[in-house]
Design a protein around this nucleic acid. Sequence first.
DNA 1: GTTGAAATATGCATTAA
DNA 2: TTAATGCATATTTCAAC
Lengths: 159, 159
Amino acid sequence: MDHLDFQALQLMVRQGRITWAELAPQLGLSPPAAAERVRRLEEKGMIKGYGAVLDREALGYDLTAFVGADLSHQRHRAEFLALVGSRPEILECHHVAGDHDYILKICCRNARALDRFINDVLKQGEAVARTRSIIVLSTVKEEMFVPTETGSDPGTAGG
Amino acid sequence: MDHLDFQALQLMVRQGRITWAELAPQLGLSPPAAAERVRRLEEKGMIKGYGAVLDREALGYDLTAFVGADLSHQRHRAEFLALVGSRPEILECHHVAGDHDYILKICCRNARALDRFINDVLKQGEAVARTRSIIVLSTVKEEMFVPTETGSDPGTAGG
DNA sequence: GTTGAAATATGCATTAA
DNA sequence: TTAATGCATATTTCAAC
């Protein structure tokens, strides 16, 4: 990935719904050349998709929480992963090295909804043995990932 | 916010770089009407922006971690928040109720980079007294927020 | 919200570097 | 191989209904 690809990625993340005509001069390219670069980035899987960033609080989803979850047994992992995939209030799910097996980022309307989610959804099946919730009081920063270094790509070095 | 606005939001998040001509029929509207609805959602602040979703690993950023951080003293809060705002490897920063004052979501190239970040950046100033890192082994799910209920908007009720 | 027309943006083929 | 140009097509925007 050369410098122009890198710059194109940053611009796509930061400017979103921008036209090629607007993007191209910032890369020092013509619109077709800019579009071609981004198309190649999509092809290589570096751009997974596009989307709108919504204001959760403005939409009445006032509660964000990080929930640590422990599996009762390895045997229930598939059940747990299926649950994770099916529930929209689970924004993120990471398998982690630490106090818990998984960390979930949950967004719901209020504390009552979180309570219901934990009891009626997470702990309903056999998979989840224990949870620990960390409530978000305020969010200082929440941004999409933007690559920051322009050096050689370690992912392809030596390949 | 009526049902069509709601549906428009969901479609914008899920379908990303879509044309009004493609989006409109899914809302049962004409292209100008669909664009107008989305424009109003932007105006109301419900849509904060748009962006590309990048594949961090494909870009060589192989390490994601959640770092709990404690302030040494309230006096250093502004310094800490300035630091958070200035560092791109801090994807998220939440003030939380729990074991730590803040939870940071960090993305960097590898363990060495995280080590450097914690020592040379986070703990460099006076603000951060203690950190605890939880390394992400694998990410099961990481999605943008999509509202899920079509009922009345509690954020504007009674207004 | 819809329709239709004007302005704008995009995609493709060609040409050049 | 990559990018610029010009033209045809598609999309967005604006005005009128």
